[in-house]
Design a protein around this nucleic acid. Structure first.
Lengths: 141, 141
DNA sequence: TAAAGTGTATTAATGTATTAATACAATAAT
DNA sequence: ATTATTGTATTAATACATTAATACACTTTA
């Protein structure tokens, strides 16, 4: 069951819809949800997570705006198979911005470029193997 | 003048104190502000930026809590010279978390590990040279 | 010691975000 | 066609964040 991949904590301080968005992104990035997969209906997932359907709807719709999902009224919500909405150059700029912010933070935490390079390598490899693992499988178990 | 390194936009949607925090971090990470340097008094910087002194005070105090600055009542606020407050392991975990978030975002934007590796290398090098440049200089011009 | 310069704390005004309740609209199934 | 299923839009209640006004406390300097 795909539900088991999600867990919301109302007392964490992090908004429910943001927690869900984050976990949905993880599920897609990690291969648990694959392009074309259908997500649970808003009411169903909302019931399973004990939140208002609007909360799930907001997570879905924001992820649609960000190009990760695709919602069709009356049909359902799906993981987008095609390229995201943004163009190649725009996406690159966005990722660059993210990387720059990490670098600034890390330098302020007194990390050296060499240490950072090592840490980055570690994490990238970890995600690569995770993506590899989730390659052959199908469906939402 | 150090003031020239800061610019706040009240209509950007981003809170003023966050804009200032970000720019202060950049100034330190990039070597414009060096350990031991004194920052402008809250009232003075506030006047220069046309905001309430509390806004500057908040930026300063949060950066103090984060270990980047050090404020002393009656004396002023300075760039912290010593190691940050967090321990080595804690800092590593924090940076790892930041990196992971970038990776998730990037994968969802359909970047491949190879592309990411390249982009990361570019940005890291860019910051390295920037840090190098700001090494010999002294004071706030 | 008085005055000026500095960061800090308290309170209030205002805007924004979050969540829920409810009704609407489009599609699919019968 | 009718009903069930699905996403969407509107509104309201509530809490939180942001900024400003103002007074306070500590340090330096004359």
């Amino acid at each position: 069951m795909i539900y088991n991949w999600f867990y919301l904590n109302p007392r964490s301080g992090v908004p429910l819809y943001l927690q869900l968005k984050e976990q949905l992104k993880m599920a897609v990035a990690g291969g648990v949800l694959k392009p074309g997969d259908r997500l649970p209906p808003v009411r169903e997932l909302a019931a399973a997570l004990s939140v208002n359907p609007n909360t799930v709807a907001r997570a879905y719709s924001e992820l649609e705006r960000e190009g990760l999902l695709s919602s069709e009224q009356g049909r359902g919500t799906f993981v987008r198979a095609a390229e995201p909405l943004l163009g190649r150059e725009e996406r690159k700029i966005q990722v660059q911005g993210l990387i720059d912010r990490v670098l600034v933070e890390a330098f302020n935490l007194r990390f050296t470029p060499v240490e950072l390079q090592e840490l980055w390598g570690e994490r990238l490899k970890a995600w690569e193997t995770r993506l590899q693992r989730g390659k052959g499988e199908k469906g939402n178990e």
